[in-house]
Design a binder for these strands. Sequence first.
DNA 1: ATTTTCTGACGAACGTGTTCGTTCCCGTTC
DNA 2: GAACGGGAACGAACACGTTCGTCAGAAAAT
Lengths: 240, 240
Amino acid sequence: MTPGKTAPISRRERPAKPALSLEGIVAAALGIMRAEGLERVTMRRLAQELDTGPASLYVYVGNTAELRAYMLDDLLGGLDLSPVTAPGDWRERLVTVLWSYGSALMEYPGLAQSALVTRPAGPGYLRMVDGLLALLAEGVPEDRTAWAVDLLLHFVTATATEQGTRKVADDARREESDLTAAILAATPRTFPRIAALGMDLVSGTGEQRLGWAFDVLLNGILETPRPEGSQDVPGADGAP
Amino acid sequence: MTPGKTAPISRRERPAKPALSLEGIVAAALGIMRAEGLERVTMRRLAQELDTGPASLYVYVGNTAELRAYMLDDLLGGLDLSPVTAPGDWRERLVTVLWSYGSALMEYPGLAQSALVTRPAGPGYLRMVDGLLALLAEGVPEDRTAWAVDLLLHFVTATATEQGTRKVADDARREESDLTAAILAATPRTFPRIAALGMDLVSGTGEQRLGWAFDVLLNGILETPRPEGSQDVPGADGAP
DNA sequence: ATTTTCTGACGAACGTGTTCGTTCCCGTTC
DNA sequence: GAACGGGAACGAACACGTTCGTCAGAAAAT
């Protein structure tokens, strides 16, 4: 596992390298991530693990963002989608799946950021979207399920990014006190509304706020139809 | 307003370096951004502009994320908040301000990403929050204004990040076809729901979708009270 | 007036992502 | 069997963010 510097043995002594494939690269990247954390997954470190040079990786992966997208998709493939077909209230089951997604993202916050930058389009992501669409179909009018799933996922991803990078910065104290100090420094003269609300602005745990946000989104989706003239798309039925 | 290029005088002609201050650094950074784009605002380029070395900047700025936060806050300070006190429907005025915020962010997408990673806490941001709180107070029950403003801004920031980085990637074609291809490749066997919806999943312009999202959020906020037991915070009134 | 202290500034260095030109190998074609 | 062509792998290099140890110069203390 820890190759260290086992003397500069020429590569020909290594018994048949796995030949370098996208799958192998992603697997190695996930291995490093689980063992040492995502921030350790650098192109150089990864290349070293695969006994090659950094430039060689670029044959299979366009850049680090793309690599992370592959890693994330792999993770999403392992997501528990059993709530999709389980019995019970569709809202509860939907929120359960969304929480799973969010939890996966929060575990490796850097991946969430990638998902926000590079829109996922891998099989793992599509699998999840399909499941969510099935759940939405149970209770949401047909015209807005497409936009709704996007909105929900977009929101969870963003929240994970925010929460996550804050965890990386580690000192939640520092962050909090930064904004907290500013709030406490607000006087009725400078920022009246902020001063009035005070620490209520930063109240609640992340879970509480996210749970509330889910309710807000679902309630809003249920009673907000899609604007007219936004659904006539050529070939929208998938039968060209 | 438009600083332009007041003759590219060599740095040695500069009469007495501005002594290097946070204000000066941020101003120079904004200058480079407006002239050459945000991606050109590197520590080295910035140091060169200020006729010093990169390391010197770290006395005033912890890292690039922090620098960008300062830049963003400066931009936010120039935001048009006149709708806050204007007459008319509070919802329309609120959305107007949110659009301003979003537009500012989309102009320099990298800044949006910073805002998502490092929570803003500068005067420009607080000014905007205070204005939004005033607008929300006109129509939203008091218990949820604090969380609502956070939710709204969080969402706009995330959307700008997503939209923006896509613009940077430039080929919206490429991006679109990536997901589009996956959608078209979906069969009723593999991903039934996705196949059924087809291109409707990617329908609508960014504006249409964001406008709809605003409606969803506001409608949801209006009818989703905050969960009980989440508002008793010590010193919540700002009077310790 | 001399000494001490401390902070802003700096030069050099490390590890990073990414690109470029070259080399090598293997399947294809004559 | 020989020559070829193309994709995979590589070595070297560039610009980047950030850190470290050092230094100068001003402020504070004596």
